[in-house]
Simulated assay, not measured.
Amino acid sequence: FFFDLMTARSLFLLCFVASVLTTDPYQWLEEVGSLRSLEWVAERNASTVSAFQPDPRFAQFLHEAYTLAIHPERIPDTTLHGGEVYEFWRDNAHPRGVWRKTNVSDYRNAEPKWQTLLDVDRLAEKEHEDWVFVGTHCLAPLMERCMIRLSRGGKDAAVLREFDLSRREFVDGGFYVPEAKTSISWWDADRVLLATDFGEGSLTRSGYARTVRLWHRGTSMYCAVVVFAGEVTDVVVTPSIYHRPEGHHEAKGKGGKGSAMRYARSATWAKGDRGPKGGTKGYPKQWQQPYTRR
């Protein structure tokens, strides 16, 4: 009886210590927009600034960093699609930024004639939103439609909205994904592969998408059919489609395992589509076994 009592007490103590060690005292910080979280961040920012500000180099370095960040001759961050150069640009006149483009030959000039596609400052003012431009996902190779990723205040979760590049406006009744941690990839002009928060059971323990679904234009995203599903213990599952000049493309889902020690590990599943060259085009009936692991 004495041995059993000691064993029970030991197990109780072990469980108690384990529960204390695994309890995250900063769990409440995941509510990034709460007043308590914002006050905590403001206090840490103030503490950091007060530690560095007395250094005589602080003001100089701060001024130099800001000047370089908005300098009109800074190295641009551009992407090339179909003979056109795309760039997201921020300056004093456009603190939220403008998404713009020009052709390759004009880009070689000292002062390219940029065409503004989306003015985020004007959009934020019009919609009374704290929009931050996060990026785009465009349909290759014609680049006629893109999904614009907009974040409220710069947080991880973002809203995705379909954008018509030729008309330079959002598509009325087009693809729209509510605020969430989302991954998306165009299958064709009327279908996308979507990984997002679909409700109960659709997320991993890390709070990211667990399923990839094929979403058809004109239907509710909540009716999209699951074409790939990861485990709850995975970190995230994402779709990627690689369009080839001859019409081939492949779709892939990736998932890292849940523990911090194994976050960098992932596996990739592939489903080929031979398109006009033969085979089954369109709806992915099944996904093959992983062909790459890292």
Results as ranks from 00 to 15, higher is better:
E162C: 08
V192W: 02
E39A: 07
A69Q: 14
L14A: 08
W40P: 01
E31V: 03
Y107E: 10
H94K: 01
L203S: 05
S50D: 15
H94E: 03
C138G: 12
G230N: 04
T196N: 05
N109L: 05
R9V: 00
R149A: 15
P178M: 03
S105V: 02
D234E: 09
F163Y: 14
T292D: 13
I75T: 06
E39Q: 07
M221D: 06
P76W: 01
K277W: 05
W186E: 08
L150A: 12
F52N: 07
R44A: 08
G253D: 02
T204A: 04
K252P: 03
E231H: 13
G82F: 05
F1D: 07
D190A: 11
W28H: 13
H94Y: 09
D273S: 15
V17Y: 02
F163P: 00
R74D: 01
L203T: 03
G253A: 13
L68W: 02
F1A: 06
M221Y: 14
E127V: 04
Q115D: 15
P95H: 07
V134L: 10
H81L: 07
G83Y: 09
A189G: 11
K285V: 13
D234I: 00
W186Y: 04
K126R: 14
K281Y: 11
R90W: 08
Q115C: 05
I184S: 12
K271W: 15
P276D: 14
L214V: 11
E231T: 04
D55M: 06
H128V: 01
E169R: 14
H249I: 00
P178G: 09
M221F: 14
P178R: 14
E200R: 11
Y86F: 10
A157T: 02
R213I: 01
R168Q: 15
F228I: 00
A209G: 12
Y222I: 01
